[in-house]
Nucleic acid binder design. Structure first.
Lengths: 211, 211, 211, 211
DNA sequence: GATGAATGAGAGTTCATTCAT
DNA sequence: TATGAATGAACTCTCATTCAT
């Protein structure tokens, strides 16, 4: 309820904080990583409210109470997972973009990477996409800041497009991201690939389906 | 957890069942309706896992235990709300469509109605959009069938459009619905109206934003 | 932490509130009484911080969770016990006073009753005397109000004494009550009776021990 | 819970033991002293049950586990604080007494010192007054012996008074100490000073307030 | 002398659910 | 139809304590 989330946890590449007892910089915080991984799996599978510290702990091979050595609270842990997830997805997107120079191709590449990341079996992505409208307001604010930081890249990509002035770039971005993120609700691995889906969505929006 | 959902609860126009003790046919099942309404409000506001039977009951003016006269379980109640929500939104969309005859305008009208329903203060519509990936598999299957039944109307609307053969109508539908449903994550009442948003999205997809 | 104590719980003879689910007025709230009694015993024996809801419950023959049907929280329960204890002691003191008319004898009688109550094996009295300087501020304030209400009777009794103007009646009262309450730390049932102790203390303060 | 208190820890002027690993005799047991000081502050502020080893440790600038190098257990630490506190207050009282030769003035001086110690910001004195009725029986016995040792000085002071044979010196002592110790419950720094309070209480008992 | 990391028990509390009345 | 009262399991979190390093 109160500020149990360490506010320093951002998606920036800088050193992540959010530890109950900060471990000495370099030394094997693999246990911390294990806990984060276990939490990601549980969060992806059961959502925040239905994920229990006990299950996370048992998946990480420790007892529930021991998690509190590494994290201040459930919310703090959730925030760390979210942070990690965004970093992963963000890196993947940025890497994909850099290979292209044409604005529309850059957007396509970014969307393909984004969609690939969220549809892969990667547990972290699921957390990043999750509906957070019901976690505590404090945590919500934090996660939204993290998300906005990430989505900034799409804002920039769309700014670089040569569009008629009548187009509302903001609505364009929201429409596109909505289409892509929604794919996690219907995607089946035996159909079109995430990259194909993403590119098709971008092209539909670029050229229109009418006529 | 176990199959406590009465399997007869579908979105079909037939009389919905799913009652613990069927009340005398005609007479005042207004209590039942009150409970459903209270549940809708709570589900919309807090999500499934964080909604308690006690809060629902107290909002309906009865005690928690009394709900079990009307419903078999929490999941059964959830299912009833979902059912009701789909019926409402479905009716609203159908009514809006019927006023138009041009296929694209019919689609626009339907999308506007859909978006209006899910973004406005109607508690039931919120449930329709809710992420159900964590309720019990049984219930999940049931709700997904209900949702597919509802989305059928968009399939038909899109089938009636005159589109080039290269267009994948299925992806088009998924892209459009994704954009619209995603709006619940960023919509603010002081900006563009739900109908405007919906129409803009349809037109973007129809004509494209490029050049 | 937050206002989990029903503020209506006062030592006044009026109807006590502070129930989670108010039982129908008259009907057997003997379970509630049992819980209060068990809590009194535990509180007297172990103090607030060391008394667990589980132990209270098991002594009352129910499960820990069931207490929350009758009380909002541990603090609410503590408050109810305190209230009850003050009522008991208050009644006893008032009854004793009424039999005397001479101011000093009235004071003696009241002190004898007070001391008798807190030294008896009555669990409630122990709670009334307990140091509450470390329970939550909210609860502390509430209990202090209850206590001040009770001590008012001594203020009145002392006001009615014919004392030289040099005497600080407030310090007199605090000295007297301090002596009496402190007895719970050293009293042994095989020595002087509570009434004798109390009367001796009053007389020492009245006439002095010097010369 | 079990007998984890080193039995050698008494208020005797002999070297106090009660160490887990006796440090090299002379050298810097300043860490030990720091821990004791931190514990005194926490115990005074939060009471025994609500004081955690972690908080004590963090206030002493070490980790919780490290306390166990210096002390066998929480109770052992508590006992050390109590011991230290009694020594401090005892010294202060004795020093004040020595300046007076008249028996009543000696008593007044001692009471003033006693009251000053327990009401002022000295953390150790607060522990001396603490209700110890709920620590383990072993520790309780130990602390009570320490306290009795301390109160001996008042026994002696009162023995030296010239009192009528009808006066029960024991009850006189208990009444006086009760009044004084009770002051910690109502004392406010902006009112009368501890010394004034103490002297007033002694004089009331000496001369009486009556007539 | 101290740390990092964990243990295991137990804390207060909430929950869906049951059932006699 | 609803209530009063309880169940039992689960929840997040805190604690004193241990021990290899």
């Amino acid at each position: 309820m109160d500020r149990k989330v360490s506010p320093a946890a951002t998606a920036s590449p800088a050193k992540t904080a959010s530890t109950a007892n900060p471990p000495s910089p370099q030394r094997a915080d693999n246990r911390r990583a294990q806990v984060i991984a276990a939490a990601a799996r549980q969060l992806r599978e059961n959502g925040y409210a239905s994920t229990s510290m006990r299950k996370i702990a048992s998946e990480a091979g420790i007892l529930a109470g021991s998690i509190y050595y590494h994290f201040l609270s459930k919310e703090d842990l959730m925030s760390a997972v979210h942070d990690e997830g965004l970093k992963k997805i963000s890196t993947s997107v940025r890497r994909a973009m850099e290979k292209e120079s044409d604005p529309w191709l850059r957007l396509e590449a970014a969307c393909a990477a984004h969609t690939g990341a969220i549809l892969e079996a990667d547990d972290f992505a699921g957390v990043v996409l999750a509906d957070i409208s019901r976690v505590s307001p404090d945590l919500q604010k934090l996660l939204n800041e993290q998300r906005n930081g990430y989505e900034e890249v799409f804002r920039v990509l769309i700014d670089e497009l040569d569009l008629p002035p009548s187009v509302d770039r903001s609505l364009f971005r929201l429409s596109l991201l909505g289409s892509l993120n929604h794919a996690s609700r219907w995607y089946k691995p035996d159909g079109r690939s995430p990259a194909e889906i993403a590119k098709t969505f971008v092209r539909m929006l670029r050229s229109g389906v009418g006529q």
